[in-house]
Computed example of a mutant assay.
Amino acid sequence: MTKQTTTKGIDSQTAISFWHQNEHRARLTALGIAVVIAALALPIMLSEYSDGLAAVSYLLGTGIGVMLIIAPHLGRTKHKHRRVLISTSARQLAQQEFNAYHKAHAIGMIFGIWMCIASIAPAVMLNDSLGAASFMIFVAIGVFFLVYVNLISGAYRRLTKEHARLN
């Protein structure tokens, strides 16, 4: 059983720093996932010309995507299970930021879902490798927005509670 300790407070300055770090992590993670999905478009397009080039492009794209996903998590070995007390002022600031982000979150969600649904159009209209590749690109863009806005929203929401795990 892991012992959870509670340490004294996160203030508003620390909360702002946490949100900046989380924004960077969210951007890289969402981009990495999108690159892994978009990497599927390259072999679809290149398979007509060279199977070897298609395979290499897929492996390269997937490798870059995976690097983007894990890069923000490298070197973070500190206190994964430590819960911290969030000061009242930081919780109030977090609630304001969370409420202010609501509109951007809704727009990002709508756009991400719309891109995933719209991805069907090029696949149906073009009915060839360009249509299939376009499908993957549209899905990658949609997934980027869905992952990004949810990670940002979660960071604001996390600090609205009295105690939080900051890992």
Rank of each mutant, 00 (worst) to 15 (best):
V124N: 08
V84M: 10
N99E: 11
F145L: 10
V124P: 03
K78I: 08
L93C: 00
S89V: 09
S129G: 07
G75I: 05
L130Y: 13
A106V: 11
A118R: 00
F98A: 12
L53Y: 14
G112W: 01
P43H: 01
I37S: 00
I152W: 01
A132R: 10
S119R: 01
I69P: 01
I69V: 14
Y101T: 05
R83M: 13
V124I: 15
Q96D: 15
I113T: 14
T77R: 15
S87W: 06
L130C: 05
P72H: 04
N99P: 02
V149L: 08
A100C: 10
V35I: 15
I37W: 04
H105Y: 15
H73M: 15
A90K: 00
G131C: 08
I113N: 06
I107E: 05
Y148P: 01
Y156H: 08
R157V: 07
G108D: 06
Y49K: 13
Y148V: 05
S129Q: 12
A132T: 11
R83F: 12
W114E: 10
L146W: 03
I117P: 04
P43F: 03
H73T: 14
A140G: 05
M115G: 05
E48K: 14
I69D: 04
T88R: 14
A34M: 03
R157Q: 09
V84Y: 07
G154R: 11
K103V: 14
A118D: 07
A71L: 12
I137T: 07
